[in-house]
């Protein structure tokens, strides 16, 4: 393991003034998850302060999506050890629908727009369970492209529009933690810019966010801090700037 690898405990620098509770706003403690018998997330820990944006980076197959899915408490991968706390709520004891009600929203890798439902219905679906965020008018104001296509079946939208819909769906819920899995993946540069603009425009709202992205530079522009995963373990944790400045680190774990 290289010299720059540090455990998360050593880098979390909580300003003394903010120490009110013993726990940070969001905290993952030594989480282990499995797909069947294959051991994928191998003891990940991370802490995020309220309103912070964290970039979760790493090569293909490093376990980034698996970590986000574990946090969102999906049935797979199965979490067998560890704790997850969000604003003093024990997320590790919850099912995915309970985690969502506790304020966690995963915008998944492949967007997962529901086939057979219109744009409008996809948004309405997010408002079925208790805990509402943005109202529909607010969403359409921020995503005029969705407003134009509200009666269209969601899966017939372009890739960029589907990504907007997936983000809009998350914003329709009462959010405490937003998990974005590769929001720029497979999109043309123009569309990437548009999504980027949206993410930058919601940044001032202070939504605590974890963003996973192959496009590390784009993610780091948005993020305050960065964590790098390799084969299911945290190999770096520090500020976004540290990653941007450290060519050796980028070369070893991000291939850029």
């Amino acid at each position: 393991m290289s010299a720059i690898a540090m455990t998360s405990e050593t880098v979390v620098q909580t300003p003394a003034a903010e120490v009110e509770t013993s726990r940070p706003f969001f905290s993952v403690r030594d989480v282990h998850s499995y797909y069947g018998e294959s051991y994928i997330v191998q003891g990940v820990s991370l802490d995020i302060r309220k309103g912070e944006i964290l970039a979760l980076l790493g090569r293909n197959g490093a376990g980034k999506s698996s970590t986000l899915r574990t946090i969102a408490r999906t049935d797979s991968p199965q979490m067998r050890q560890g704790e997850i706390w969000l604003d003093d709520q024990p997320i590790h004891q919850m099912k995915s629908f309970e985690a969502a009600r506790a304020g966690i929203q995963l915008v998944p890798e492949d967007r997962r727009i529901i086939p057979g439902l219109t744009v409008e219905e996809n948004i309405a679906l997010a408002k079925v369970a208790p805990g509402h965020g943005w109202d529909v008018e607010q969403i359409y104001e921020s995503f005029p492209r969705l407003a134009e296509r509200r009666k269209q079946e969601g899966v017939t939208l372009s890739g960029g529009e589907q990504q907007m819909l997936a983000i809009a769906r998350a914003l329709a819920r009462d959010l405490k933690l937003l998990l974005l899995d590769e929001p720029y993946e497979g999109l043309a540069p123009v569309i990437v810019h548009e999504i980027e603009r949206i993410l930058h425009s919601i940044k001032p709202l202070g939504i605590t966010t974890i963003i996973v992205e192959q496009n590390a530079v784009a993610a780091l522009k948005l993020a305050d801090r960065a964590v790098i995963l390799d084969t299911g373990e945290v190999v770096f944790s520090g500020t976004a700037k540290e990653v941007l400045d450290n060519a050796e680190l980028r070369h070893e774990y991000l291939a850029i």
Binding site: D75, F97, A100, L106, R112, P115, L117, L125, V128, A129
Partner: peptide
């Protein structure tokens, strides 16, 4: 209908 098409995503949106 949404659950029949994609049960996981419906759960992620907070629905039991």
């Amino acid at each position: 209908r949404a659950g029949m098409a994609d049960r996981e995503t419906v759960s992620i949106l907070g629905i039991n």
